[in-house]
């Protein structure tokens, strides 16, 4: 356990665990509403914030948070009110954000592409005490929202129109998800980097789905997967000369593959059980069931 001794490793591990918890916790709602790549888009927009931070000589983390939050709110508004093609509007925002970041960082006297790459791919070993403080505060916010409002966020992400008719403040909840996702992106920026952050939001959820039947179980398994891979990746990068961000993401994909292989026989058994149930029902109540041929579309 000698990897626990250096202070930089303690900070790195703490930051990594917080990301392992928060990224899947937000990601599950994005996956649920089929916006799995939203995190990627926010990451691109956050690059402008990093560039701005260098240019104005202020903290890139807080500047990235600010710009990512603004960008994610803009994305949500485009999605909700978009009269133009939503995907095109988002593309403009993504690439505008990325180009803005590259431009701004090269304009700043202290910044260079080398600085930028530590935000693009993460730089876990240089996480400072202030970074850890910022990450802890932001992670606390994310956990509070994603766990405390899970019923409401589930309803909104499951069926937005229905949620509106239950009287939930759907617009506010959608914006809250967008802001929380933006905060998570900047939390994860130092650990896995802006380009890989979306992977940590989506892959653990995809892995958890292979085994679980319920939203609750998917949430728990996804967070457990997130913690496992961030810790494993960080420790691996201490002993081997590998970049932690990439290692973490590859571990996550490895778990996805393993769980998918494990789930195949499970799914087969479930399908068989379902078949039996249907056969039972047919024998019991309706001997000759047929579907109506008119599928109604509006």
């Amino acid at each position: 356990m000698d990897f626990l001794e250096p202070a930089f490793m303690q900070r790195a591990l703490l930051a990594a665990v917080l990301v392992g918890i928060t990224a899947p916790a937000v990601g599950i709602y994005l996956v649920q509403r089929r916006q799995a790549l939203m995190g990627d888009g926010i990451g691109h927009v956050a690059m402008t914030g990093v560039g701005l931070g260098f240019l104005l000589n202020s903290s890139p983390v807080w500047m990235a948070t600010l710009v990512a939050v603004a960008g994610s709110v803009a994305m949500e508004l485009i999605r909700a009110y978009g009269k133009t093609r939503g995907d095109l509007a988002l593309a403009l925002l993504f690439y505008g954000g990325m180009a803005g970041g590259v431009l701004l960082i090269n304009l700043s006297p202290t910044g260079s592409n080398a600085n930028l790459s530590s935000y693009l791919f993460g730089s876990l070993s240089t996480v400072s005490t202030e970074d850890v403080t910022a990450i802890s505060v932001l992670a606390g916010f994310v956990v509070l929202v994603t766990v405390g409002l899970r019923r409401q966020l589930f309803a909104v992400s499951q069926d937005e129109e229905f949620a509106r008719v239950t009287g939930l403040p759907v617009r506010a909840l959608n914006l809250l998800i967008a802001v929380t996702a933006a905060v998570t992106v900047t939390v994860a920026m130092r650990v896995v980097g802006l380009l890989l952050v979306s992977a940590l939001m989506v892959v653990p959820v995809a892995a958890a789905q292979q085994l679980s039947k319920s939203f609750r179980m998917t949430f728990v398994l996804a967070v457990a997967t997130g913690i496992t891979v961030t810790l494993a990746g960080t420790v691996t990068s201490y002993y081997q000369d590998v970049p932690p961000g990439a290692t973490i993401v590859l571990y996550a994909i490895g778990i996805f593959i393993v769980l998918t292989l494990l789930a195949a026989p499970l799914a087969k058994r479930r399908a068989k059980a379902a078949e039996r149930a249907i056969a039972d029902c047919d024998a019991r109540c309706v001997p000759d069931t047929r579907r109506p041929t008119d599928d109604v579309k509006v």
Partner: peptide, 30 residues
């Protein structure tokens, strides 16, 4: 309200109880 849908599922697995329970939020929002 029963919207016109061909499916009750979304991008993440959910049980029948979880989906049905979301209808109760109109009584107890938060």
């Amino acid at each position: 309200y029963v919207p016109q849908r061909t499916t009750a599922s979304a991008g993440v697995p959910a049980t029948v109880r979880e989906v049905v329970a979301s209808g109760r939020l109109s009584r107890r929002r938060f």
